[in-house]
Design a binder for these strands. Structure first.
Lengths: 225, 225
DNA sequence: CCAAAAGTGTTTGCCTTACACCCATGC
DNA sequence: GCATGGGTGTAAGGCAAACACTTTTGG
């Protein structure tokens, strides 16, 4: 390909992935101690550089895959970050993506390999550079979408109880929900289907397990991107 | 500064500005025929490359200034675009920003200088590369924010009538509004203040002019970024 | 005096919220 | 039989939507 624009400058472009997880203790963020200079040892999001043969989105997917071994994960862009000195090593422009995964699916080996740690979202240590801005943006995006899209689904296993679903919702929104009103709303979502199975791990009586029906969801009034 | 990361690739990074305007005919978008190869002659957003001595946001502000001569304009990021072949000339990663201006403030000279044209938002020609995606994203962002933030203000002159305000709202939301309900809602926004002045250009009777009180707005429950 | 835009309240229905008790079962 | 989480309905209040006529004044 012929090279145009050659009078302009070029920059490193990286992706940073914000991995949210959920378990019974609440909403978690996966971060690690930076193993690269500069900034070595500071808590940071896991990131990587964009390669010439991949789109920025693909770079984010690849980075998530390196990190978790997962593909086809719910992922959304959380903005581009381009302050001059945001990275002390060089001019790096970064695009943030957030991903939602089920903590139980996440394999401990990867965690150790990269020395990563799940932190409760409300007890994060100071983060490298502008990483907190990225996380904050992602959290606000999730909260906004919570009303229109069942983002919560992505943080749960394929079969889940309504109590679990409510817990996730509360963890993201930060607001307690009324059990009956919550269940009433879920009933009206025809893409959340009751199964005949029960989960007995949390109570003697057992709770019905539900599943997400993606086909039914896609038919809905508002879906985007 | 010492150079780290040198084993990675570097890319051109550009900004594209999505300039929305409003006049009595409705919501408009400012675009021009691309004067650069490749893609010369295609309708496109106005853009520019990020310089080494400016942040990406500053690059967007500068680009808007070149284009309109305006500063301190309402501007928001509308995502980063990083497909490999999005620009046929070279690998260029672009960050989109949208800006809202009052069409009447916009000076015709600039318009001619760059051969730019205001298009009604629902009658756009095909755009270069992924520029339509950017515009679409910006429109959706505006619609979402419409409920929480008086984005409409930015498209109007400092003094405006309630009828104008309603027209802008309708143009962005795409939905007609009930006059009485609309005015009721505006009354409850204490950051939109009635003045004693009247605009007689639209009617014999004249309509009261209102102004936006930014200080009052900043005190409000929800403001972000 | 008439055309054209400005301005002004009330009613209705719906949707959101608040709220408390019985059920099933393992131990 | 009791402790633990699971599951269910109704009433009240607040909010959003529907709706039509009077006012002003330049021409």
């Amino acid at each position: 390909m012929k090279e145009f624009y050659s009078e302009h400058s070029r920059y490193y472009v990286s992706v940073d992935v914000i991995v949210f997880g959920f378990n019974k203790e609440g909403l978690k963020l996966l971060i690690g101690k930076r193993k690269m200079d500069p900034g070595r040892g500071q808590w940071a999001l896991y990131g990587g550089f964009v390669r010439p043969d991949e789109s920025v989105l693909d770079a984010a997917k690849r980075t998530l895959f390196e990190l978790t071994g997962m593909k086809d994960v719910y992922m959304r862009q959380a903005g581009a970050y381009g302050d001059i000195d945001r990275d002390p090593g060089a001019r790096v422009i970064s695009v943030a993506y957030f991903a939602l995964i089920n903590v139980e699916d996440y394999n401990e080996l990867e965690q150790e390999r990269y020395e990563l740690k799940w932190f409760p979202i409300d007890q994060l240590p100071p983060l490298f550079s502008d990483h907190w801005q990225m996380v904050d943006k992602a959290l606000r995006m999730m909260r906004k979408r919570l009303g229109v899209e069942p983002v919560t689904i992505n943080l749960l296993p394929p079969l889940f109880t309504l109590t679990q679903l409510q817990k996730v919702y509360e963890a993201i929104s930060g607001k307690p929900q009324d059990k009956r009103n919550f269940r009433k709303r879920v009933q009206e979502m025809d893409f959340i289907e009751k199964t005949e199975k029960k989960d007995k791990s949390m109570s003697k009586r057992g709770a019905y397990l539900y599943k997400f029906n993606e086909k039914a969801f896609l038919l809905h009034p508002d879906f985007k991107l």
